[in-house]
C-alpha cells in the first residue's frame, strides 16, 4: 500500500504538551471552567466558609444541578424543555397527595415521564417549536399544581421519612446528593457510552444526517423529553421529602439556575454540542456563587439578578456567534446614510 496521505488535523503531535492541547481543544466546557475558577478563587478569599461548610454548598449544587442534567439531554438534541419548573411542582404535589410514600414517589415519577411524553408529542407529532410547546405546558402544569393542591402547600403524610431523608446518609452526603451524583453518573454514561444517548448528539448536530444514517430521530426526541420530565419529577420528589411538604409554586427560580448551569456548561442551545460534565461544572459554579452570596448576607433578589446576568452573558457569548457578532456590531454602528 502506498504511504498514507498526511492530512493531519492540525495540532496533533507526540509530545505531551501538544497532546494536552489536542485533548483540551476538543472540550466544550471552557466557559464553565473559567466561571468556576473565578467564582472559586474569589469565594476562597472573601467567603472561605463556603468551602468549610461544604455540605450546604453541595446541597445547593445538587438542587441546581439535578434539573439541569435532565435539561441537558433535551438541549443536546436542539430542543428545549421550559416545563421542567412546573413538572417539579406538579410531581411534588402528586406525591404529597398520596398517603403511601412509596406509591406517591412512583406516581410522581410516572407523572414526570407522562409530561415528557406529552411534550414530545407536541414537538414531534404536531410539529410545534419546543420553546412554545413547553412554555404552554409550563403554564398548564403550574395551573394543575395549584388546582391539585388547592393553592396551598400540601403536607407530606409521612413526615418522619422526610426528616430522615434530609440527614446525612453516607459520610456528609445526604440522600439528595447521592441521588444527584447517581443521576450525573447515569447520564454521563448514557450520553457517552450508550448508543441511544450518544445518538442525541447526531440528532442535534445534523438531524438530516441522523435520518439518513437510519437513526430513529423521533424516538430519540421522545426519550430525551422523558428523561427531562423524569429528572424534574425526581427533583420534585426530593424537594418534597426534604421540606416534608409540596409547594405548588416551587421551581420558578430553579428554571433560571438550571438553564444557566447548562448553557454556561457549554451546551449549545441549537443542539449537538455540550456535555453532562460541563453542566456539572456549570451547576457547581452557580451553587458556590449562590451560597457565597447567601452567606455574605446578599438577598435572594440580588442573587436572582446575579444569576440572570450569568445566564444573559452565557447565552450571548456563545463562541460560535462571536465572529458573527463582530460583523453585526460593525453593521449596526455603520452610518445609515444612503447614496
Amino acid at each position: 500500500m502506498t504511504a498514507a496521505l498526511e492530512l493531519g488535523s492540525g495540532e496533533s503531535g507526540d509530545n505531551l504538551l501538544a497532546r494536552v492541547r489536542t485533548v483540551l481543544g476538543r472540550r466544550t466546557e471552557g466557559r464553565a471552567v473559567a466561571l468556576l475558577a473565578v467564582v472559586a478563587v474569589v469565594t476562597a478569599f472573601l467567603e472561605p466558609v463556603v468551602f468549610t461548610s461544604y455540605p450546604v454548598t453541595l446541597g445547593r449544587i445538587a438542587l441546581i444541578g439535578l434539573v439541569a442534567l435532565g435539561l441537558t439531554a433535551v438541549i443536546l438534541m436542539g430542543e428545549l424543555d421550559l416545563s421542567v419548573a412546573s413538572t417539579l411542582a406538579v410531581s411534588g404535589v402528586v406525591m404529597a397527595s398520596i398517603e403511601s410514600l412509596p406509591l406517591g414517589i412512583v406516581a410522581a415519577l410516572l407523572v414526570g415521564l407522562m409530561i415528557g411524553a406529552a411534550n414530545a408529542f407536541f414537538v414531534v407529532a404536531v410539529g410545534i417549536n419546543s420553546f412554545i410547546a413547553t412554555l404552554g405546558m409550563l403554564f398548564f402544569l403550574r395551573g394543575s399544581a395549584f388546582v391539585l393542591s388547592n393553592e396551598e402547600p400540601v403536607r407530606l403524610a409521612n413526615r418522619d421519612a422526610g426528616i430522615a431523608f434530609g440527614k446525612p446518609f453516607l459520610g456528609p452526603l445526604t440522600p439528595r446528593m447521592l441521588l444527584f451524583i447517581g443521576a450525573f453518573i447515569a447520564l454521563q454514561v448514557f450520553v457517552t457510552r450508550v448508543r441511544v444517548g450518544r445518538e442525541f448528539y447526531a440528532v442535534g448536530g445534523n438531524r438530516e444526517a441522523a435520518y439518513d444514517a437510519g437513526i430513529p430521530v423521533t424516538r430519540r426526541i421522545v426519550t430525551g423529553f422523558m428523561i427531562s420530565g423524569f429528572v424534574a419529577a425526581m427533583a420534585g420528589v426530593i424537594n418534597t421529602l426534604e421540606r416534608t411538604a409540596a409547594d405548588p409554586t416551587a421551581g420558578s427560580t430553579v428554571l433560571l439556575a438550571s438553564f444557566a448551569a447548562a448553557i454556561v456548561g457549554g451546551v449549545l442551545l441549537t443542539g449537538g454540542r455540550g456535555s453532562i460534565f460541563g453542566t456539572l461544572l456549570g451547576a457547581t459554579s452557580l451553587g458556590i456563587l449562590q451560597v457565597a452570596l447567601t452567606l455574605s448576607g446578599v438577598q435572594v433578589d440580588v442573587q436572582n439578578i446575579v444569576i440572570g446576568l450569568v445566564l444573559l452573558l452565557a447565552v450571548i457569548t456563545d463562541p460560535n456567534s462571536v465572529r458573527g457578532v463582530v460583523g453585526s456590531v460593525r453593521s449596526l454602528l455603520q452610518g445609515r446614510s444612503r447614496a
Partner: peptide, 28 residues
C-alpha cells in the same frame, strides 16, 4: 453524497459507524 452528511461534534470513529454503532445490550 455530494453534501457532507457528518455530525460535527461527534468523533471520526462515531461518524464512520453512525446508524450502525455496534452495541451489547445498548452499550457501545
Amino acid at each position: 453524497h455530494q453534501e457532507l452528511s457528518l455530525v460535527p461534534e461527534m468523533t471520526v470513529a462515531e461518524n464512520i459507524l453512525l446508524g450502525s454503532t455496534p452495541t451489547t445490550s445498548g452499550f457501545i
